[in-house]
Structures are given as C-alpha cells and as structure tokens.
C-alpha cells in the first residue's frame, strides 16, 4: 500500500514551518508564487520522504496530506 504525499500549493502560505521540522530535509520553498501571493513549500527531494507526517502535523493550514493509494510504492499515485 503506497502513500501519496501532497502539498496543496494554493492553500500553503509558505511559512516554512514544515521545511524546518522535516527530519529528512525533503521540503523547500518554491521559487514560483501561488495565486494568493505566497511562495508555497514543495517536495524538493521526494525520494527521501518517509511519510512520517511531521510536516502535516506542523502545518497551520492543513495544506499537506498523506493519503493511501494502491499504485506503485514510489508514492506516485
């Protein structure tokens, strides 16, 4: 059972708290701005993500979700 990590780049305000708490330094702040004027977080190194959900826990905007999906374990649902 694979898990899909997803950041809603429109909901994210680019506060950076997730980037700081990620134990595997997977996340970073994007260079491109979203429609609301924020530079959202994104998975810079998705292959290192262990789906521990610490970023989800820390996110004040519930912008990061991890959902089960049945395709390849690499997480690319």
């Amino acid at each position: 059972m694979a898990h899909q990590h997803h950041i809603d780049t429109e909901r994210c305000k680019g506060c950076g708290l997730c980037v700081a708490v990620c134990p595997k330094q997977v996340l970073d702040i994007a260079e491109t701005v979203n429609t609301r004027g924020y530079f959202p977080a994104y998975q810079a190194r998705p292959e290192d993500c262990v789906r521990c959900a610490l970023c989800c826990t820390m996110c004040p905007d519930v912008a990061i979700t991890i959902t089960e999906c049945d395709s390849a374990p690499s997480g690319a649902c």
Partner: peptide, 11 residues
C-alpha cells in the same frame, strides 16, 4: 511506518 494525514471532517 507510513502514516496517512487528512483534513478533519469538522474543519
């Protein structure tokens, strides 16, 4: 162990 995380229904 991989976890899931979704928005609560009440939110």
């Amino acid at each position: 162990m991989a976890k899931t995380f979704t928005k609560p229904r009440s939110l």
